[in-house]
């Protein structure tokens, strides 16, 4: 499930002025890879993810998944939004099934399996209002996984959660990745998260959004944040990250 991204330019026109958001993005993601995209706010990382998903098609370039170009959103590019975006009138299992029929034993079986995987057993009949933020996001993940996407795109999915829940969901995600071998692309502004999850890390810089550096992360899973190796990589990412900010100041308003 290789994903090839080649974006020459993505720009918004605002009050007659062209505002370039992304420029010369060339990325190739191998099947089963876990890519984390990290960058300062406003660097266009969420825009990039929306382009990969097919939610944004007004750009110059192309996105291909397995050689098939992406022109519209679809279940092959599963998408997890920053907010859970569950349907409030459906229960957990109905939300996961969404347009599929729960009465179909095949669907029901897969839904049950996923509920097990995202650790929501016992909450199948609950409505979203009864769930915590972390639980809701797990339902959203299960909903995307039920469609067996070739690639799962995650847009700062754990940003709004507390530290404990975030850590827990990161482990859930890694667990799914190991079991399902789904290609993952996760956008975050949390350096710790990007190092903990990804086996490939892309650092973006802002104005216009470009890939500053691609870093493979050779650390065995499950990773431990307290080891010197982890901390060393984290330091390297942090120093690269700071370089992007220096660049921004240098190229910005002349400071």
């Amino acid at each position: 499930m290789a994903v090839t991204i080649s974006i020459k330019e993505k720009a918004f026109v605002q009050e007659g002025r062209k505002n370039t958001v992304l420029e010369n993005i060339e990325l190739s993601i191998a099947p089963g890879e876990f890519l984390t995209l990290i960058g300062p706010s406003g660097c266009g990382k969420s825009t990039l993810l929306k382009i990969i998903a097919g939610l944004d098609s007004e750009y110059d370039g192309s996105v291909e998944i397995n050689g098939r170009s992406v022109t519209a959103p679809g279940i092959q590019q599963g998408f997890i939004f920053q907010e859970h975006r569950l349907f409030p009138w459906l229960t957990v299992e109905q939300n996961i099934a969404a347009d599929l029929n729960l009465k179909d034993p095949k669907v029901k079986q897969k839904v049950d399996e996923l509920i097990e995987i995202v650790r929501l057993k016992g909450s199948e009949k609950a409505y979203p209002r009864e769930l915590s933020g972390g639980m809701s996001q797990r339902v959203a993940i299960a909903r995307a996984l039920l469609r067996e996407p070739e690639v799962l795109l995650l847009d700062e999915p754990f940003g709004a959660l507390d530290a404990f829940t975030r850590k827990h969901l990161q482990d859930v995600l890694l667990d799914i990745w190991r079991k399902k071998k789904t290609t993952m692309i996760l956008v975050t502004h949390d350096i710790d998260e990007s190092v903990y999850l990804g086996n490939e890390l892309a650092i973006l810089k802002a104005k216009p959004g470009k890939i500053h550096k691609l870093m493979p992360i050779h650390l065995a899973y499950p990773r431990n944040r307290t080891t010197p190796d982890f901390q060393a990589i984290r330091q390297r990412v942090l120093s690269e990250f700071e370089k992007t900010e220096d660049l921004e100041y240098a190229e910005g308003s002349g400071i």
Partner: peptide, 13 residues
């Protein structure tokens, strides 16, 4: 409108 985006991603008819 956010729920429509979800409907598009999930390929609702």
């Amino acid at each position: 409108a956010k729920l429509f985006e979800v409907a598009r991603v999930l390929e609702f008819k």
